[in-house]
Design a protein around this nucleic acid. Structure first.
Length: 271
DNA sequence: CCCTGCCTGCTG
DNA sequence: CAGCAGGCAGGG
């Protein structure tokens, strides 16, 4: 569910509540959430740790602990993180809870249970997948796209969704990027002109950073929606708008499937 | 490369 | 009720 801009929102909104905090208690309510440890081991290793930094890479979040260990969190489709007082009612599917020295709780809620947490000791190899990610959208260059996109006989949309090529783009922003670039998501990477690759190079970071801005909400707003409202709907040009009028030309937007993912584009504005 | 499984919940 | 959901790994 959350893509890079949403994950970045989670990070910036929650950072003030977790930085410098010591974990006083750990609850694991759904064992499989912790991907690389048994719940009891995770609880034992995490209790008493101090959170020194909270970073994002693609759609992955990392809690850096003062001990040198680190914890990776991936929200997948439905994972959310919230800060609550211990007295607050527990949402259904509250799968993991870290109680902080402030008295507040960092709660991980995930109805589908696809998301994961990984714990790594200081010198342990991080096999969460975040080390295999492509560059952040802001780091993409024309040369890189020529090498990774222009050589591929695969739909542009599918390539944009590949985290090994570029980190952080999901189904929403893949469609939005294609629309903004005026390129049909069905186009093969190999069919793109240098001009189009150049356009992508500018538009990919622009769209991602714009939505990070849109999502910048005060904690109260974030908390009120239980970490699920990212305030992006009003700013989406094509995602979720199949059969509606294109905001640029008025033509009916096409809804289709590309690589098993729902996709929307404008036949007139995108070539 | 395509396809499935992982899960629950919401929508038509 | 079927079908679909903003993600990803694993297998063929």
């Amino acid at each position: 569910m959350p893509e890079l801009p949403e994950v970045e929102t989670v990070r910036t909104v929650l950072a003030p509540f977790v930085l410098g905090q010591t974990v006083t208690k750990v609850q694991v309510n759904l064992p499989k959430v912790v991907a690389n440890l048994q719940p009891a081991e995770f609880i034992q290793k995490m209790t008493g740790q101090t959170i020194q930094n909270f970073t994002r890479r693609g759609k992955f979040l990392t809690l850096h602990l003062k001990s040198g260990a680190h914890v990776v969190v991936h929200l997948r489709m439905t994972g959310t993180l919230t800060i609550e007082n211990p007295t607050a009612v527990y949402e259904k599917h509250t799968n993991l809870v870290l109680t902080l020295q402030s008295g507040k709780e960092l709660r991980y809620i995930d109805s589908r249970g696809f998301g994961h947490w990984w714990y790594y000791e200081p010198n342990q190899n991080d096999d969460s997948g975040q080390n295999l990610l492509g560059p952040e959208p802001a780091e993409v260059t024309l040369e890189y796209l020529q090498q990774k996109i222009a050589t591929r006989n695969t739909a542009l949309k599918t390539l944009l969704l590949d985290q090994h090529i570029i980190a952080g783009i999901g189904n929403i922003y893949a469609d939005e990027i294609c629309f903004r670039a005026g390129i049909r998501p069905t186009r093969k990477g190999s069919s793109l002109t240098v001009g189009e690759l150049q356009k992508l190079c500018t538009i990919i970071p622009a769209v991602i950073s714009e939505f990070i801005q849109f999502h910048h909400v005060p904690f109260e707003v974030y908390a009120a929606s239980k970490g699920t409202s990212y305030q992006n709907d009003a700013n989406l040009a094509v995602y979720g708008r199949a059969k509606k009028a294109c905001l640029h030309c008025g033509q009916t937007l096409i809804g289709t499937r590309i690589g098993q993912r729902s996709s929307v584009y404008c036949e007139n504005c995108q070539k």
